[in-house]
Design a protein around this nucleic acid. Structure first.
Length: 593
RNA sequence: GGUCCAGUAGCUCAGGGGAUAGAGCAACAGCCUUCUAAGCUGUGGGUCGAAGGUUCGAAUCCUUCCUGGAUCACCA
């Protein structure tokens, strides 16, 4: 890595020239800005106090030292405290031949012993997936691929929320009003059918509360005493008592939901190594909590409920077990964390969960620590921001939820319309064309979501369809398809595979190579920060740079066959990096579009 | 009220101690007899929420304030 070499050489320069010891980290090292001549820039301001000279003089002396000690440096220039280094072309050409052309470029060989457990998706069986889940799933899927590229063994797990009072609500509604309809008889996707009954319950429940309050009952009391909610609670009791009738219906309706989810996951392109169900895990953690009481790390209140007191740590008291001895979400999460930790001995357990649960994970880690469990330190909550609509947060009650299946279908249709209008598929078979629409539509959606920093909230306006021009998935896909078109034409013309070295590089070639050089460090950084956005923005920069090259520099039209051959090679490598980078985002690229 | 996150061009987003703050969209003006115009080039557009502070240097770090959001359930 040239950066390390240059940093070390700067340390040596300060030692030899100024007889001072410095550490490599204090040196500023970056890519040279585009308008200025140079490939890499050393910021020497931090060195001037050791040199006791002006920034310009320091930069010049260090520059001279670097040039005579690092053979790859051709020359340098100094602007204020910025030492701009120009590398020899051989440096870039060696890089292309020896690194970029390698199939493993940008991936680290498998070297991490302990796996990483990555939990994401975590749907609720009474609601179909919506845009928020899409972000979650795309992030989880992409992060798993990025971690794998960085040499980690990733175990992707899904924890399905398939029990609880909310699930019982859809059961009650179904028993009352369905007349036994099924996804098949209703012609509705399973998860949507279940969701329909959940919504119906909420609607009727609200109606019931309204009529109760109209007859003079306070709202709070009405919400508790309404017949529907009482029924749902009764169903929950029967469920916990394993009532065969309830269990059977519960299994049937959950089965419908899973069939629906499976379709959505498939179209989104996400998958899991293991699926956990809360109905299996909700009792886990109780023993942990009891042992915590015995060790007096937790508090049992007179009514029997168990709490953890985090007030010394600046938080509140938090319930861990109800007074009737039943467990809450936290109890279960304590249990599953321990279970996974003991099963896989992971180096990290990453949870892709929305930022509304920051407090939950904070408490979870603290409680595990209080209980003396090391699993708490392995937990990392990847908290991502919400997807907001122009009018604010998505609310299922107000019908402002953007459904995942609908959105994917819309993207497909928009892709089809745009593509047909442009006349791009006139010579495609139906099958090829449909595949292309899916690739472009889903590519646009995925890129749109993944290009923004996971931590930040993002805005989605359903009225404005996701763009296909500019900083978008289709733009990148188009660039890739263009490259493949060039390569096909060249292959047809029978150009040789021998790639001679060009006598010199034009600016556009050099800029593309410099960006290619960044790729491995971007992949590493994306792995360190668990941020697909870094890959997305990088691939965009690369595609944009390549397009400029493509537009301004002849490839096949070039007369010198050696230059043609080199430019094809550069194009081919760029195409490979675009494909690999997009793959890390879970986005496919088409050979033609 | 406590805690946490965010505020950068009209809009959506990059940049998270270094040079004159960048892209895309939208607007306007160019570029297809030549490798795919889902492209390329150019123009306009900014007191980086505000004020202080640290620093040779601050959009970036610290403090306070303003605005928006999240969260603080015997929900998950």
């Amino acid at each position: 890595m040239i950066e390390q070499k240059i940093r070390e050489c700067c340390v040596a320069a300060v030692k030899d020239l100024y007889h001072q010891e410095i550490t490599p980290e204090i040196i500023g090292f970056e890519r040279t800005k585009k308008e200025i001549e140079g490939d890499f820039t050393v910021v020497v301001f931090p060195l001037v106090r050791f040199a006791r000279k002006s920034p310009e003089a320091t930069a010049a002396e260090v520059g001279e030292y670097l040039k005579s000690n690092i053979p790859w440096i051709l020359h340098y220039n100094v602007i204020k405290g910025f030492l701009n280094l120009v590398m020899k072309e051989a440096f870039w050409l060696d890089f292309l031949e020896e690194e970029a052309a390698s199939p493993n470029f940008g991936t680290t060989p498998d070297y991490h012993q302990a796996p990483v457990i990555l939990e994401y998706s975590s749907p609720n069986t009474n609601k179909p997936l919506h845009l928020g889940h899409i972000r979650n799933n795309l992030l989880g899927n992409s992060i798993s691929l990025i971690l794998e590229a960085n040499g980690y063994h990733v175990i992707k797990v899904n924890l399905v929320n398939d029990r609880g009072i909310h699930i019982c609500k859809s059961l009650v509604a179904y028993m009352k009003w369905s007349n036994g309809e099924t996804p098949k008889s209703a012609g509705i996707k399973g998860d949507h059918l279940v969701g329909k009954y959940y919504v119906l319950f909420e609607k009727q429940y609200k109606e019931e509360i309204r009529s109760l309050t109209a007859s003079g009952i306070p709202e709070e009391e009405a919400a508790k005493s309404a017949g529907l909610i009482v029924e749902a609670q009764e169903v929950l009791r029967r469920w916990e008592a394993q009532d065969p009738e309830i269990i059977a219906l519960w299994q049937t309706m959950n089965g419908w939901a899973y069939e629906g989810f499976a379709d959505t996951y498939k179209r989104l392109g996400v998958e899991f190594d293991k699926t956990y169900y809360e109905s299996d895990t909700y009792l886990l953690g109780k023993a942990l909590v009891y042992s915590g009481v015995e060790r007096e790390a937790l508090i049992r209140k007179p009514d029997g409920s168990i709490w953890v007191d985090l007030q010394d740590e600046g938080l509140d008291e938090k319930l861990l077990m109800r007074s009737d001895g039943t467990s809450v979400y936290m109890t279960q999460d304590l249990g599953t964390a321990e279970q996974r930790y003991n099963e896989y001995h992971p180096s990290r357990m990453v949870y892709v969960v929305g930022n509304e649960q920051i407090y939950h994970f904070d408490v979870l880690k603290r409680v595990l620590r209080i209980l003396g469990k090391p699993s708490g330190d392995a937990i990392f909550h990847l908290s991502y921001g919400m997807v907001e609509l122009p009018e604010g947060k998505m609310k299922s009650r107000e019908g402002t939820v953007v459904d995942a299946d609908d959105l994917m279908e819309e993207m497909y249709l928009t892709a089809e319309e745009t593509t047909r209008t442009l006349g791009k598929v006139d010579d495609f078979s139906d099958k090829e064309a449909n595949l292309l629409f899916e690739t472009i539509g889903l590519g646009a959606l995925k890129y749109f979501i993944l290009k923004v920093d996971p931590k930040k909230n993002m805005l989605f306006d359903p009225k404005e369809s996701i763009d296909f021009n500019g900083n978008t998935g289709p733009f990148i896909q188009y660039t890739y398809a263009r490259i493949q078109s060039l390569l096909r034409k060249a292959a047809d013309a029978g150009s040789s595979s021998f790639v001679p070295r060009p006598s010199s590089l034009v600016t556009q070639e050099r800029e593309v190579i410099k960006l290619l050089y960044q790729y491995p460090s971007i992949v590493r950084q994306a792995g360190d920060e668990l941020s697909p956005a870094l890959i997305a923005n990088y691939i965009y920069d690369l595609a944009k740079e390549y397009n400029q090259f493509y537009q301004e520099v002849p490839v096949l039209r070039e007369e010198d066959p050696a230059v043609v051959s080199f430019r094809l090679e550069l194009s081919s490598i760029t195409g490979d990096v675009i494909r690999k980078g997009m793959k890390l985002l879970g986005i496919n690229v088409p050979e033609r579009m």
